[in-house]
Design a protein around this nucleic acid. Structure first.
Lengths: 159, 159
DNA sequence: GTACGTGCAAAGTTTTTGCAAGAAA
DNA sequence: TTTCTTGCAAAAACTTTGCACGTAC
């Protein structure tokens, strides 16, 4: 149920002190299935009765990311979001609905393989990747939403 | 050679005034093969003898992106970069070297197809996507660089 | 002449940093 | 006791906004 001991182990491995704040922040992140913003984390901590400064949250998240237990995301909202990597295979593919803003996780082994291949063909040695697909989610499509193009009437016709 | 007339057409279509500043900014972006930051653009404008306020640059980039002629990128540097979509097929795949920071463009038709398929399988209607692969570029590999893992010694073993 | 753009500076966001006081080992 | 953390507030970095003045049409 709780994965905090993994983080504790990482801290010890690195010779870093295990503090109340670090454990509380890790617990909050590990117990949320969503992609959390720093503000979300702060709110959840307050709900638990913990009052931890933003600076500490940022600093702890940096450590969590470095430990490999948490991943940082940027969905172009102007701030970052954080997600733990337990449960299923690490999810690095996100479908982002341009209508309702919902973010759906996805995983495709084939996709992973093709990406890897393509990168290697360029002499590149891939380590991790991040894919964001923007479009309409199933719900919004069902509700009748449509993709809209507000750009040039005749997109890119190099005339 | 110059694609500015496409932007002019877009502005007219939208009933927006065509101004000197808008044309100068579009020219700078259209004539650079790189991914430009707002600061880069400002510098290039100054080199051309144009002194245009940052606010205008931001506002014009917004319009350029909406026109579909320019794409906004976020490589996690803390600021955005902009790239025109002329020349080759729109490039939405980036190989980012974690050693030297270089960003290499890539394009794979197969990759595109697999992505599309995977999204549709989830009931999602894809419109555009963005892929970032982090790793080591050919040069850094040749120079002997290696991927390093500074996270937990035994990555994610849910024990 | 009217509507919209421009430039400046101020305000807004999110994130980082400096430092005195405090906790972990 | 020594080292590293915490929390606050200030700073930083990028972007947006308000407003008086100018320009496109």
């Amino acid at each position: 149920m709780s994965f905090v001991h993994l983080f504790r182990r990482y801290l010890r491995e690195q010779g870093l002190p295990v503090t109340q704040q670090r454990e509380a922040i890790a617990e909050v992140v590990f117990n949320s299935p969503e992609h959390l913003s720093v503000e979300d984390i702060e709110k959840k901590l307050r709900e638990r009765g913990e009052r931890i400064g933003k600076a500490t949250i940022y600093r702890t998240l940096e450590t969590l990311v470095r430990s490999g237990l948490v991943e940082e995301h940027d969905f172009g909202e102007g701030f970052k979001r954080y997600e733990h990597l337990f449960g299923q295979k690490p999810v690095r593919e996100h479908l982002i609905c341009t209508e309702c803003g919902k973010v759906v996780d996805m995983h495709s082994t084939e996709l992973h393989r093709v990406q890897d291949e393509a990168a290697r063909q360029q002499g590149f040695l891939p380590a991790r990747y991040r894919l964001q697909i923007y479009g309409l989610c199933a719900d919004c499509r069902a509700a009748g939403a449509e993709l809209r193009w507000e750009g040039l009437s005749c997109p890119i016709e190099t005339v």
